[in-house]
């Protein structure tokens, strides 16, 4: 049973990353009509920024949790201003191709300097060790990742669904021209939205650094799984992305325990099943 709980926890952690990443993809898609293929590369950049901060500047994990998303978010906003914004009005697929190219560039540059092996990033002192819950041993850092990701996801949901800014954002997703007519600077909102989505990816990268090591290709395979998550959950609802992300992580964890051979493929197989049974995805809204 110990092993089952341990795999469930791993599943919840992967689910946190799926949720944070698919949330960002959904927010970006809503505003920019672009599927951000560079999301995995930017997640990786988040982890690398944390690594640089610690090893070059001696700046600890807690600061990295704030600084890395801001740095990567600014990088993302520069990308949006210099490249992505020129794609407005073109076919969706150009956004996919452009961001795929950006992902190749970013990952290639990092691979050149850091190879393909992982760099260690140690768990911060405050979160070292674990607690015995009676039925299982819980490493504190892993518990922290799950709780913190959940809080960030819910905060993002609150920001978009319940605040004035979020209302502008949702309105601009529906009809940007009309929102502009009300005197709201929609292009700036689009840039900030991209920054926000990318920042969430970078945050996931920092969280994963002590668990998965810092590797140039750490986001390359992950982003494909996240795409499957997005296909399953649909990008129409924020809460839908969060729930689907965590749920699929847990299912993956259970698969690792009961049938480890299929743990790599279970999310893709589920995607196929969902497409056959309910082609519009779980949270409705056909695309």
């Amino acid at each position: 049973m110990q092993a089952l709980y341990a795999q469930l926890l791993v599943g919840l952690i992967n689910g946190s990353f799926y949720a944070l990443l698919s949330l960002g993809l959904a927010v970006i898609f809503g505003m920019l009509n672009i599927i951000n293929f560079a999301h995995g590369a930017l997640y990786m950049m988040g982890a690398f920024v944390a690594y640089f901060l610690l090893n070059l500047g001696g700046i600890n994990y807690w600061w990295a949790l704030i600084i890395a998303p801001v740095v990567v978010g600014i990088f993302g906003m520069i990308l949006e201003r210099t490249m992505l914004q020129w794609l407005a009005g073109l076919d969706h697929l150009y956004g996919l191709l452009l961001t795929f190219g950006i992902a190749l560039i970013v990952q290639g540059v990092f691979q050149n300097y850091f190879g393909s092996s992982g760099l260690p990033y140690s768990i911060p002192d405050q979160l070292k060790g674990g607690v015995n819950l009676g039925f299982m041993f819980l490493p504190i850092y892993r518990g922290w990742v799950v709780v913190f990701s959940l809080v960030v996801c819910l905060a993002t949901w609150f920001l978009i669904e319940k605040t004035q800014l979020g209302a502008y954002l949702r309105a601009a997703t529906e009809n940007p021209t009309l929102v502009r007519a009300f005197g709201i600077n929609v292009p700036r909102m689009i840039t900030l939205t991209y920054g926000l989505g990318v920042g969430l990816a970078a945050l996931a990268g920092v969280l994963s650094a002590p668990i998965n090591q810092v590797r140039p290709l750490m986001g390359a395979d992950l982003i494909i799984v996240v795409f499957a998550v997005v296909v399953i959950g649909g990008m129409g609802s924020i809460m839908g992305s969060i729930i689907t992300g965590f749920a699929l992580g847990v299912i993956e964890g259970l698969t690792k325990y009961f049938y480890p051979e299929a743990s790599n493929t279970v999310v893709f197989v589920l995607m196929v099943v969902v497409l056959l049974v309910k082609p519009t995805g779980l949270t409705g809204r056909a695309a």
């Binding site: 494909i224 296909v231 493929t265 082609p279 695309a287």
Partner: peptide
Amino acid sequence: ISIKRQGIYFSMITLALSQLLYFL
């Protein structure tokens, strides 16, 4: 399977299916 969805979803589905085969 993949023509069940249009546009950008179609691309993501084909990518995910090929990744499924890669692991197989």
